[in-house]
């Protein structure tokens, strides 16, 4: 008995060339970088608008963390230790700002480009694909979010609100939160008909902002409410950041991160499909 020649062995582990190409298409390509390049060029004319996004979360930090924090005193942190309220609330505000920044770019701006600006119409007449448009928009939201998260972390560090070396992961986690919300926001936007529909986004993001254990621990809720809150993506983000910054790190954080990543990937995929469905008709 002789062994079959090597070339006859089926290499089933590797996807076929066609499937690889399709995967690459679904994941976007260089076209998304070029649309990001366009956005960067537009904001060169409006860098002040761009930079202004740094301030909103800082105002919250000053008002609620430092101001209100004086009245609140100490609260129980994630490891059971007592921490000053401002230390407790700061990571929550970082999570909120990651959410808001991502949502703003991927909802209002995307809707404008989709319905009024005809930007995507122009872009899709070139070799750029719908999936690349989705990736570019979400990627752009993240670039912006990264800048804001870094600025916020610098302020937190300078105020002495960071207590663990794990906090170096706070910026990547803020980006992960941004990724999940940008992808979901963009998906939602592709279903919107008019500016009125944006009330639904506020209807979703305002309670998330207020009730996702951003300002107080989950333990204040009755059991039934707790279960609901635990499934919200912002809660997962708040816990991730709070545990990292205050140094209460465990393997459960990986699941939380995975949850956000899955939301982001699903949103990225659907929004790319939707852009194609809306414009390539």
């Amino acid at each position: 008995m002789t062994a079959p020649p090597l070339s006859d062995l089926p290499l089933r582990m590797l996807p076929s060339a066609g499937r690889l190409a399709r995967l690459r298409q679904a994941a976007g390509g260089p076209g998304s970088l070029r649309l990001i390049e366009r956005h960067a060029r537009v904001y060169r004319h409006a860098w002040l608008v761009f930079a202004s996004g740094v301030f909103e979360p800082l105002f919250y930090l000053l008002s609620i963390g430092l101001g209100l924090g004086v009245l609140v005193g100490r609260v129980t942190g994630p490891g059971g230790q007592l921490v000053p309220y401002r230390d407790f609330v700061a990571p929550g505000l970082l999570a909120v700002s990651a959410m808001n920044g991502a949502m703003y770019d991927s909802t209002f701006n995307v809707f404008f480009r989709l319905k009024y600006d005809k930007l995507y119409e122009a872009v899709l007449a070139t070799p750029v694909r719908p999936a690349e448009v989705a990736l570019a928009e979400i990627g752009w939201a993240l670039i912006r979010g990264c800048l804001y998260a870094v600025a916020f972390m610098l302020v937190m560090t300078s105020l002495g609100l960071v207590h663990s070396p794990w906090a170096v992961l706070a910026v990547p986690v803020a980006l992960l939160i941004g990724f999940a919300f940008a992808a979901m926001g963009m998906t939602g936007t592709t279903f919107m008909k008019s500016w009125q529909d944006f009330d639904y986004i506020l209807l979703a993001s305002t309670p998330l902002f207020l009730f996702s254990a951003t300002f107080y621990p989950l333990s204040v809720y009755p059991r039934a409410v707790r279960v609901v809150v635990e499934w919200t993506p912002l809660y997962q983000g708040v816990v991730l950041l709070r545990d990292l910054v205050l140094g209460a790190v465990g393997p459960a954080l990986l699941w939380r991160a995975a949850y956000l990543a899955v939301l982001g990937v699903v949103g990225l995929y659907i929004s790319g499909r939707r852009i194609g469905k809306l414009l390539l008709v």
């Binding site: 070029r34 537009v42 122009a122």
Partner: peptide
């Protein structure tokens, strides 16, 4: 090359930037 019925120029950019950005979409 496509000249659509309604202009889809990038109104946030200058004339020259429009050509630059559009050319970049083609790589």
């Amino acid at each position: 090359g496509v000249v659509p019925q309604e202009d889809t120029l990038d109104v946030e950019l200058t004339v020259r930037e429009n050509l630059l950005v559009y050319g970049r979409y083609f790589g």
